[in-house]
Design a protein around this nucleic acid. Structure first.
Lengths: 237, 237
DNA sequence: AAATAATGTGTCGTAAGTACATATTTGTTA
DNA sequence: TAACAAATATGTACTTACGACACATTATTT
């Protein structure tokens, strides 16, 4: 009697192991960039037949010996050559049929980087920056992931010093304001914006001015060291 | 030449399918309750040898034909008999060795429910409410998941009408304030709290009073219909 | 009827948010 | 070289939110 039960349990366990350990986990990175006064996202042509012609986010399956954060940094590194960039986990997406090759649960991350200063390794063709406003349809559920990530970014942006990776090291308040305006999708009053930013005390006046402008140049600032978010080691402020 | 490549690709694909579709995904529910002026969490004795004697959150592996939200509602339903409760996804946890049986990536959800009005099906022994302050060590990485979920709840609580599932349908402002105090871990000024809450316009004055008190009774309120969060169908406000 | 233990509301000072105007600095151009 | 164009830099007045705090009211208990 006991033996039968034992066997049964073992069998059940074997079955259940097969039943359950057969999902793939992926990481999808929503890599935001900023250039030409527009918020952009890095997309690649999907290589799946099912999504022929559509773009997708940069993602990959998580390896057996890789944790989620490591996978996200690997993907970023592989595609952009960067490894000192801040990544933030956004949400897990796990609809049953979201991936044509099988059950793939994906964890979305977003990242921010300055397009001008980090030219892509464009060896992979079909890897391009796209203006957010022009992104309509993406492969998989990636449009939903993109929308969720943008909302997440918008919620963080006024409370936390996250956006500075989108700008060059030195930037003017006008540039910063334009960046906020593209992220939030609203126009901001210049004077009030400056007050709000300066009171947060994130910025360092580096005593330099803009150059090569056809009008009065503004002062240049950089983020204070303690608010630079280079990598996960950095504490959340 | 081309044929060889073809074969190679097919082989690679086969290998990679085996390599990658071998992760299990679980959902862990941090079920918060409120009773006796204390925030509590529902825990169960771990049935794994490795964690003998330790409690764990309520979780289960996600079935092949089940999406993440469905799994979280199933777990809640199985353990508490409830299916009309709000669940909120918190974060994905995916350290390589977080589960002794193999690679299990887990998605954490939190939920809120009124302990008094939803007596547990205590057929499962060892399923109990624990005061948050007394929870020290949990199985797996569940302590970290609990801490993260609490922080998430704390961040939401002043901005969004999430906590009302922790209270009975009718409640006094004092009860609501005590709840906020337990969640946030701070004392609040009664007059300022009332101002702050009433300005949000979440509450409906139902023209009833507390009864059976040894002092002056307070008015009773309920959440306005549009802010009740029964299930995911409910929009986020 | 007095004491107790809550509820319910108001005020005042400070900080933050919003709308708005003027002076200043640089490069350009007539 | 003086006027102009275009942007920077800053200030003020009004309104709204926040925090500390005090007093009158109501139901129960003794």
């Amino acid at each position: 009697m006991e033996k039968t039960l034992q066997l049964k349990t073992a069998e059940i366990e074997k079955i259940s192991h097969l039943d359950y350990f057969n999902i793939a986990v992926s990481v999808d990175c929503v890599i935001f960039g900023y250039d030409d006064k527009e918020l952009k996202v890095l997309l690649i042509k999907s290589d799946l037949e099912e999504f022929a012609g559509l773009n997708s986010l940069l993602g990959d399956l998580v390896k057996p010996d890789e944790d989620l954060d490591t996978a996200s940094y690997r993907i970023l590194k592989e595609r952009t050559g960067l490894d000192d960039v801040y990544l933030e986990q956004v949400h897990a997406f796990g609809s049953i049929d979201r991936h044509p090759s099988g059950r793939v649960v994906t964890i979305a991350y977003y990242s921010l980087l300055d397009i001008k200063n980090h030219k892509l390794k464009l060896s992979h063709n079909e890897l391009h920056w796209h203006s957010l406003s022009e992104v309509k349809k993406l492969a998989f559920d990636h449009k939903k992931i993109l929308d969720t990530s943008l909302r997440c970014l918008q919620e963080q942006v006024m409370e936390h010093p996250v956006v500075f990776n989108l700008l060059p090291e030195k930037f003017s308040l006008r540039e910063l304001q334009e960046l906020y305006e593209s992220i939030l999708g609203v126009e901001l009053d210049r004077r009030n914006f400056r007050k709000k930013i300066t009171v947060k005390d994130w910025l360092l006046d580096i005593n330099e001015m803009e150059t090569n402008l056809s009008h009065r140049p503004g002062k240049l600032y950089s983020v204070k060291k303690q608010y630079q978010r280079k990598n996960k080691k950095m504490a959340t402020v």
